[in-house]
Design a binder for these strands. Structure first.
Lengths: 218, 218
DNA sequence: ACCTCCTAGCTTGTATACAAAATAACGCAT
DNA sequence: ATGCGTTATTTTGTATACAAGCTAGGAGGT
């Protein structure tokens, strides 16, 4: 058993995974007794886990009425993406100033992977590496609170299965934006890096809108 | 008794107050049994409350070692203020665009109160109204997620008793910045409003720094 | 005298049992 | 048949009891 942490923490981790993977559907009611039985634990640690998930926005607890998996409306996305754009823009800004030549090399290596997966039309791996890339940037920015807030929002965004890269042409755009970002970082142009990152996020929002519109039409 | 909510929620609210007011000192260990006894509840709802407070950053839970009141280091302030500056800047931006003439009148009324308390050297009331003013702005911006995140950070900041307005001259500066903000809002100059608000927050950070330096010297 | 190991206690983590409130089901009256 | 009221059941909220890990203090050895 690698898992030596508390049952509460284990429950938090597992439920997050299930919520993000939509094994637990948005809006679904969570029955404490049934869920506890399913996880093989008692209600006490499970309830503590649900309180944590509630504070982090994954579920909503309606007093005396139960616990429900959170759902993100299109309106939420419209509100969250601009915030993310600001925060990640700030990250890019800091990285442009702080990163060492070595750091930039590591980023470049990740970017190369992105190019490769894009060329191979491997959307899943592209997403994966993209995540790692953004994560690495946050690490380099070295602002723990910024990192914390972005992390919260990122996890939340995953509640909605937005896969905007599936929109034709979007992956190429995304890649071009990443290229421009790497350029700005190498030039140590903080203002440009921030602006590019901002627009990168906002472009994702635009892509999501058109996907939603397309789905609406169908 | 107006208070009909769960014991857990009551505990959360009360503990927040105690932590913010420093009735519970930063770094202090919270003994579950003793605290539960003190609050007149059992450990079960108290533990749920502590989990929530932990997720919101008010306390840190070290597994099997206990729960400790969080403390903000000067480093944390240096990280948080720039984020706040961005977020509140964004709020100002949105308000400049969205606010109706009526909204602006309400804000102006609040600003008048600020001027009055400043003239009367009533620092406490100035802080109070200042809080209401910023809160009103967030309301007008109408971005619930932005509001949520700013709210979290604001409460966190109150962990450190930073009273930068006590620095001589700072209150007058603060007032001037508020005046400039109102001007920009009336002119519907979103970019200017955003910039002014950003600098308003960053100026607070600078004031805090010099207070810390002064305290260091003493 | 100091370090180590072991034990005793205290504190956190978990399970179960109980209380209270909300939902569902049933019967009655219209 | 339908709507309302009452009761039964389910489910959340809370308390208590139990298990397991950490801390501290003392005994024994070097």
């Amino acid at each position: 058993m690698i898992n030596k942490s508390s049952l509460c923490q284990q429950a938090v981790d597992l439920l997050k995974k299930r919520i993000i993977s939509h094994a637990l559907a948005p809006g679904q009611r969570l029955d404490e007794a049934a869920l506890a039985m399913d996880l093989g634990i008692s209600r006490t640690p499970l309830r503590e886990a649900l309180k944590i998930l509630s504070a982090e926005g994954f579920v909503h607890i309606k007093p005396r009425r139960g616990c429900f998996v959170a759902e993100l409306t299109p309106g939420d996305l419209e509100e969250i993406f601009p915030i993310m754009a600001m925060l990640e823009g700030r990250v890019a800004h800091e990285v442009a100033i702080k990163a060492t030549a070595d750091d930039l090399k590591r980023l470049a290596a990740l970017h190369e992977k992105l190019e490769k997966h894009a060329a191979g039309h491997d959307v899943d791996r592209y997403y994966e590496v993209n995540y790692v890339f953004h994560d690495a940037l946050q690490e380099l920015a070295g602002n723990r609170w910024l990192q914390h807030m972005i992390g919260d929002l990122r996890r939340l965004l995953r509640l909605s299965r937005h896969r905007s890269l599936k929109l034709e042409g979007r992956q190429q755009e995304s890649l071009a934006e990443h290229r421009a970002l790497m350029d700005a970082l190498r030039r140590r142009d903080a203002a440009a890096a921030e602006e590019i990152m901002k627009n990168h996020l906002l472009a994702q929002l635009v892509a999501l809108r058109s996907m939603a519109a397309r789905q609406e039409a169908a």
